[in-house]
Write a protein that binds this DNA or RNA. Structure first.
Lengths: 147, 147
DNA sequence: TTGCTCCTCACGTCACGTGAGGTGGC
DNA sequence: TTGCTCCTCACGTCACGTGAGGTGGC
């Protein structure tokens, strides 16, 4: 899916690839969740790359699956961007201590997300158990009626 | 948790027990998601029962975990209420065929919900796998730095 | 050149949040 | 009787939906 060569995309294509609308993408740009795409004069078309598509996908996914507000997502993504920036700088300098610090920070961040995911999964599993119990009960009653 | 004897509750208590706000409860009543509680003259306090608390809990849970809109939830709950109503009528008549029909309908309904829950759980598990992969990768890099 | 997609307002909607001013009931 | 919770408007907000009227680019 990511295999698209990095040809420039238009907003409608990005919307289709991510399963959302052009309005949503413009809105995310408006509130700073998505970078303003390249330079363009007022009224000209926005141009996106495969990286942007990945970003939109991630935003929609975390919002949908974890139920995060866009404000919460902004913070989460800002932290991620900050780490990416640091990584580019420090990895370039081959500084071993800096690398360790960055990796440790990344681990913390991943841990936070994992916790959110697991809490949700637990709640869903609980709901599933209850539904399965109801189903078993209904089957049992049906069997009783047939006997 | 359900063990509360069925003493009448006020809206603030219901809000606290369900982890939401009084505004939300009044809104659900306004759009028909919750029954208008008992007779009361204009301006008088609303009175709730333990059953209402359970209903609010279920609404919030399905909305949160499955990401359903209140309109979608209305339909789902309306169907459930219709079945409950049928059950009361037909079970009273001891009609065997009617009972079977009701149970079969209930099973269908449970099946629909189970499908929603499983789709979501699958998506969450996929996200969890990706995070675990990232974490493993970070740990590997840290180990390389320490060597 | 013609279509189609894109552009920018700007108002509408869903699911509530947040007061303002007033009354109910332990 | 005094507090506290509740009541009803009613406007605000978040995350977009939905046109209206106009322009960009294959």
């Amino acid at each position: 899916v990511t295999a698209t060569s990095d040809k420039p995309l238009r907003i409608g294509e990005v919307a289709e690839l991510t399963g959302t609308t052009t309005r949503t993408i413009r809105y995310y740009e408006e509130i700073g969740l998505l970078p303003v795409p390249a330079e363009r004069a007022q009224g000209q078309h926005r141009v996106y790359t495969a990286r942007d598509v990945e970003r939109v996908r991630e935003i929609l996914r975390l919002k949908d699956l974890l139920g995060l507000s866009l404000e919460a997502l902004s913070k989460l993504i800002a932290a991620q961007d900050a780490r990416d920036e640091l990584r580019r700088e420090y990895v370039a300098t081959e500084d071993r201590a800096a690398r360790k610090r960055i990796l440790t920070e990344a681990l913390e961040h991943i841990g936070t997300q994992l916790e959110l995911v697991r809490d949700r999964r637990g709640a869903l599993e609980e709901l599933e158990r209850e539904l399965l119990e109801k189903r078993t009960e209904a089957h049992r009653k049906l069997a009783t009626l047939d006997a």
